[in-house]
Write a protein that binds this DNA or RNA. Sequence first.
DNA 1: AGTCAATATACCCTAATGTTATGAAAATTG
DNA 2: CAATTTTCATAACATTAGGGTATATTGACT
Lengths: 316, 316
Amino acid sequence: MKIDPNHLCILAAIIDAGGLSEGAVAVSKSQPSVSRTIAMLEARLGARLFEKGRRPLRPTELCLSLAEQGRIIAQASETASLSAAHYSRGKSGTARIAGTPIFMDGVIANMIASFQGAFPKVTINQTYGYMAELTEQLTAGNIDLGICPVSAASVPAGFAFKPLLRGRNVIACAPSHPLARKSAFKLADIASYPWIAPPAGSPLYSDLRGALGSIGITDFRVSFTGGSLASILSVMAGSESLTVLPYSVVFMQSHSKTVTALPVKLKHPERELGFLWREDRPVRPAVQRFRKYLESEFQVLANHIEQKGRAAVWRA
Amino acid sequence: MKIDPNHLCILAAIIDAGGLSEGAVAVSKSQPSVSRTIAMLEARLGARLFEKGRRPLRPTELCLSLAEQGRIIAQASETASLSAAHYSRGKSGTARIAGTPIFMDGVIANMIASFQGAFPKVTINQTYGYMAELTEQLTAGNIDLGICPVSAASVPAGFAFKPLLRGRNVIACAPSHPLARKSAFKLADIASYPWIAPPAGSPLYSDLRGALGSIGITDFRVSFTGGSLASILSVMAGSESLTVLPYSVVFMQSHSKTVTALPVKLKHPERELGFLWREDRPVRPAVQRFRKYLESEFQVLANHIEQKGRAAVWRA
DNA sequence: AGTCAATATACCCTAATGTTATGAAAATTG
DNA sequence: CAATTTTCATAACATTAGGGTATATTGACT
């Protein structure tokens, strides 16, 4: 015979509360309702659950063993409620994000770290990809959110885009670089250093030529290409190489003193870094939470960048 | 928000069974019923439990974590059902019995042992007492069943009595006793040995005089009195003492070769050993089970006693 | 594209559960 | 020990969650 788990919970509540009336309050039901529920349970079980004619209701041994299970059930039910609440407030769950490697490594990774500090039960699933892969993965439902530089005009149909940071590229080098230590230098000097090119196919790669062209440099030597941010920084630290990086990336690395920006005004790309997602997909709470978190982080970051950048890089 | 434990069970069933329809079968409900239950749950949670528009129904992560609890609940519910079934079949629970010490130790204890072998989850709560205490304890609800010699006529109002064994007392002694080794002896010889008297107040004590009187012995020396069965047997084994015991007790001890009965025909008491209980009290299944068990054991015992007794004791 | 199998909806109905008012009985207290 | 209080049970009634059958809908597969 199957016993309704609810009834077992009520049983446990009565016993733990020390009385039918108190138990009724504990499960927020009326006293008669609980009384009748017990009576029906007894009838179905064909056994008494409380000794007859005792006013401080005394449970039988059967009742006690059933209440044991009732407690377990109440506990599980409570846990379920909590995890549902957690989930729908975005405090647990999974957010699957993907983005361009340089940004993910140079900017987002830091934010993920602090996000995880605040919401440790949210699992972040991070992968890499450029625009084409991102739209593909979003459509396939493999990721929830893309993060990449997009020119607002080129957002594909069916996708939503929320800009976070305007694109500002800078010429980056190691802090120990000869040019970084000069207060002033000629643009022509720049061209003589070896260049690190971002991974082929990345938006940065095309930015590189455009940016240098904008300051009259068309001829330069590429000494290293295709690496991740980590390898770019390593190469840069051990050489006199230059490269073009988003200022946000340089800024985020500034505390580690591995990279700095030269005070050269480049032509900035039309693109803005932002979120990309399919607008026809429901947004899971954890994703929503993560998005909001990054948005506020980026707002702070954007201010800092604007101030520091104006002072140190495009002061010209 | 409180989640109905039943719904969590259903969730678990669906996932474990690998489909809504199979899950419905698993919880023995119709498919539409389960479908609607899920839909309502989703509405209340404000979150999807299964991904929309996927035919082999795919659970969301929230669903999985809820199902986890559902499994716990199903398990607890199952356990509760089982323990209820066990209980109402008398396979678990408690039986509180009390009886006269000599019978409890000499006869019932053995039966309890075998009963416990058959029903290990039934707790037997054994205490001692004579008629007066038994009726008192029964009325107070401290015990479920009394076991003692009662003359059918003297059953108090409100009590029920079920006879198990007619009273047959014998003269008992150690197997090594001089009289036990003789094939024949005069009754007068008996009187010369020291006597062990049963505990004062016990029915046996009054039986002692009556029985010996019936064979013409009125003058005898009491060397030991008041002990339990164990002490009586010990004293008897180490001396040439005689005593009067129920033949059932002597019979049950026969395998241990610590006591034997002299072939003397005594006047048997009017009383019969039997169960005593209050007929206005509901009988718990475990008590019922125990009672039935003892009844059948006693039936067998009664036959054995009748045969063996006729052959060895009251053959005269 | 058509078929099949799985899930969702519509509809009706029963039974469980809730509420308030009230009765009964055990426990407590003067 | 009678009066009172506390606690539980019952009655009567309203509501609705939840069950079933029949049927529509929709992914998935050939």
